[in-house]
Design a protein around this nucleic acid. Structure first.
Lengths: 140, 140
DNA sequence: AGGTCTATGTATAATAG
DNA sequence: TCTATTATACATAGACC
């Protein structure tokens, strides 16, 4: 779509690669906007240039898009069961489910903390008074 | 770009909205691929149709793109300090930094667990034998 | 709901400033 | 580098299967 036909392969010349990047980036952002409006779609687009700079477009918010993406993916994946024994190995593959696993870990952490505190309190109340020697537990 | 010019507003007729969605979705995916190849860019594109279905394209992997997005954003944001006192309030705004907070929580959980186990072991070894009455701690 | 056709609108490669 | 121009290639609206 221009004066000459081009083949789709990496543009070697960095200057024209940069120029083409600017033009096509604008083009694809426009297309993304149009798609979102015309078709009532939620769109999230992230682009990293070859120089590493981030360009983004989203019809709503990237948080919303990424969260929704994670949710949509979970439906097709076996997700770490929040009630199972800390099975978080699938995280490597699906970082977008962090939100759920975070909630799970957070809960477990709270439970463990609570448990530890109760044990410690109980210890202070019932055990410590009966002890004459120092407990060298490092936990505070 | 077709037989007639159109204005960019939501297409009311759901059938033609669906048809336009299919066509333009293919179009934007093609553009995204071309951009990635021509300009050596990393691209991630997520689209949810008005019926809620997910369509995605990425030149690498969505995990990579989302992680990189999170990292790029963090540079411009104050992130929960992993060493601070469980300060995860910023998560609501930036879900893409879950990976870091997860690592942090994971570490804390492991520490707490270890602490709890040591305390429990110490308890079993030094305290339990000296107790004649039952400890009604609910933790296992 | 997907594929084909084709006239026409758009995007953009090449070029110049 | 950035901006403007323009000839061309491409995308797609509308139509019909």
């Amino acid at each position: 779509m221009g004066r000459g036909k081009i083949v789709i392969r990496r543009i070697d010349n960095s200057t024209s690669r940069q120029v083409t990047f600017s033009k096509r980036r604008n083009g694809i952002f426009k297309k993304a906007k149009e798609l979102a409006i015309l078709c009532d779609a939620e769109v999230g687009l992230m682009i990293f240039s070859s120089t590493g700079r981030l360009y983004e477009y989203t019809s709503t918010s990237m948080k919303s898009v990424i969260d929704r993406y994670g949710k949509a993916k979970e439906e097709h994946q076996v997700v770490a069961n929040p009630n199972s024994e800390l099975k978080v190995c699938s995280l490597d593959k699906f970082p977008y489910i962090y939100s759920q696993v975070f909630a799970c870990l957070s809960k477990r952490l709270a439970l463990l903390k609570n448990c530890l505190l109760r044990l410690y309190a109980w210890h202070l109340m019932y055990i410590y008074p009966t002890l004459k020697h120092n407990a060298n537990a490092e936990c505070a």
